[in-house]
Amino acid sequence: NKFNKEMRNAYWEILHLPNLNEEQKNAFIQSLYDDPSQSANLLAEAKKLNDAQA
């Protein structure tokens, strides 16, 4: 299933973003579980936030 793979990839990438705190990571990961079809968008948002907090 495409979403499972996308979701897993997004999950791991978000988990390893160095500039997000636990609360931010948890919020993105919760959103992933709530709507796996948004994995790519959530990952993009997480990366933007990560870069902004660098």
Results as ranks from 00 to 15, higher is better:
residue 1 N to G: 14
residue 1 N to Q: 04
residue 3 F to W: 05
residue 3 F to E: 15
residue 4 N to I: 01
residue 4 N to F: 09
residue 5 K to H: 02
residue 5 K to P: 10
residue 5 K to F: 00
residue 6 E to K: 02
residue 6 E to G: 01
residue 6 E to Y: 01
residue 8 R to I: 14
residue 8 R to S: 03
residue 9 N to H: 15
residue 9 N to G: 02
residue 10 A to W: 01
residue 11 Y to I: 13
residue 11 Y to L: 09
residue 11 Y to F: 05
residue 12 W to R: 11
residue 12 W to V: 03
residue 12 W to I: 04
residue 14 I to R: 00
residue 16 H to M: 05
residue 16 H to P: 03
residue 17 L to S: 05
residue 17 L to T: 04
residue 17 L to W: 02
residue 17 L to R: 04
residue 17 L to K: 04
residue 18 P to L: 09
residue 19 N to M: 14
residue 20 L to Q: 00
residue 20 L to Y: 00
residue 21 N to P: 10
residue 22 E to P: 13
residue 22 E to W: 13
residue 23 E to M: 10
residue 23 E to T: 06
residue 23 E to W: 10
residue 23 E to F: 14
residue 23 E to L: 15
residue 24 Q to E: 05
residue 24 Q to M: 06
residue 24 Q to R: 09
residue 26 N to T: 02
residue 28 F to E: 00
residue 28 F to T: 10
residue 28 F to Q: 03
residue 29 I to H: 05
residue 30 Q to S: 08
residue 30 Q to H: 14
residue 31 S to M: 07
residue 32 L to E: 00
residue 32 L to K: 00
residue 33 Y to R: 05
residue 33 Y to L: 11
residue 33 Y to T: 03
residue 34 D to M: 11
residue 35 D to I: 07
residue 35 D to K: 14
residue 35 D to W: 07
residue 35 D to G: 12
residue 36 P to K: 04
residue 38 Q to N: 08
residue 38 Q to A: 06
residue 39 S to E: 00
residue 39 S to V: 13
residue 40 A to K: 12
residue 40 A to E: 11
residue 41 N to E: 05
residue 41 N to V: 10
residue 41 N to S: 10
residue 42 L to Q: 04
residue 42 L to T: 05
residue 43 L to H: 03
residue 44 A to W: 05
residue 44 A to R: 07
residue 45 E to W: 13
residue 45 E to A: 09
residue 46 A to N: 00
residue 46 A to I: 05
residue 47 K to P: 00
residue 47 K to M: 04
residue 48 K to F: 06
residue 48 K to N: 10
residue 48 K to D: 14
residue 50 N to S: 07
residue 50 N to G: 06
residue 51 D to S: 13
residue 51 D to G: 08
residue 53 Q to P: 09
residue 54 A to E: 03
residue 54 A to P: 06
residue 54 A to T: 02
